[in-house]
């Protein structure tokens, strides 16, 4: 369908299909709805190949102590591909640690964007809702574009949106677990209530998980391990790119209702016409 360029209703926007289906996040526009992480890649070369195949426009990095012996920088890889750098606060256990890490990232990378990640323990890596909310409020007040990683909790998602976060990033399942989306119903509830983009973050194992996230109405998917730890990262990155696109198109298209019994897809045969 051709876009008339008019200020259409939501329904008309959806009818426009994929041609002008941009993601608006933190006031910026993006074509790709696949956000990549960089953890777990065996080398910068493999990471570079995967990022290229994924078509991503935003990719996360962590902040760590500078190691004089390390060679090559993930930043060089991202800059060479024109990919927006999204620093995270991975490894932080308290709001105070996360706020300091975000401020250091802003200083080092020149971006006010931060994926806020405050974990509760190193066995589950599940996000701590109390510390996350505390840090989110402080970072929003400090002018950051805050993208918080949270459990699949609709109430917390709503509170973080009210606190001024630019998106909410509920998990599908624990980081790196590959268990997919354990509570699709809660993801749907978050999507229904959200006025900011919902980014499914963590737990994606394979392409169908990413497609499901988009079919549930998520605005984007963030994943790393599913690609970087795949046997062939570049190939899985391509699979994820297609899965996110397919899931998005299916969401826009509108799935048919589930039925208990069959509904014939061929015209009924006129009475007496057979035999």
């Amino acid at each position: 369908m051709t876009n008339t360029g008019s200020t259409g209703t939501e329904e008309e926007d959806r009818d426009a299909g994929a041609a002008d289906d941009t993601l608006v996040l933190g006031g910026e526009k993006f074509t790709s709805r696949l956000i990549m992480g960089t953890g777990g890649a065996p080398s910068l070369e493999v990471l570079d190949e995967a990022l290229a195949a994924s078509g991503t426009e935003i990719t996360t990095v962590a902040m760590r102590r500078l190691d004089p012996s390390s060679r090559g920088s993930v930043l060089d890889v991202l800059r060479a591909r024109g990919i927006k750098v999204l620093p995270n606060t991975a490894g932080c256990y308290t709001a105070g640690e996360a706020v300091l890490t975000a401020r250091l990232a802003r200083e080092a990378l020149g971006t006010p964007w931060v994926k806020l990640e405050v974990i509760s323990d190193d066995r589950t890596l599940l996000p701590d809702p109390i510390e996350t909310f505390d840090a989110a409020e402080r970072l929003v007040a400090d002018g950051f574009v805050v993208l918080p990683y949270i459990g699949d909790d609709p109430a917390l998602a709503r509170r973080l949106e009210q606190a001024g976060c630019a998106a909410v990033m509920p998990l599908g399942s624990p980081i790196g677990s590959g268990l997919g989306i354990r509570n699709p119903h809660n993801i749907e509830l978050i999507v229904e209530a959200a006025g900011v983009p919902v980014i499914l973050d963590a737990g994606i194992g394979t392409a169908s998980d990413a497609a499901l996230a988009m079919e549930l109405g998520c605005d984007a998917v963030l994943l790393a391990s599913a690609v970087t730890r795949a046997r062939r990262p570049g190939l899985m990155a391509a699979a994820m790119k297609h899965a996110v696109t397919a899931g998005r198109l299916a969401r826009l298209a509108g799935r048919i209702p589930r039925r208990r019994y069959a509904e014939a897809s061929s015209p009924a045969i006129a009475a007496g016409a057979h035999v």
């Binding site: 953890g39 990095v61 902040m63 760590r64 102590r65 500078l66 790393a224």
Partner: peptide, 10 residues
């Protein structure tokens, strides 16, 4: 003094 930089992660 802590000197930080961006690394692969997340």
């Amino acid at each position: 003094v802590e000197v930080l930089t961006a690394v692969q992660g997340g």
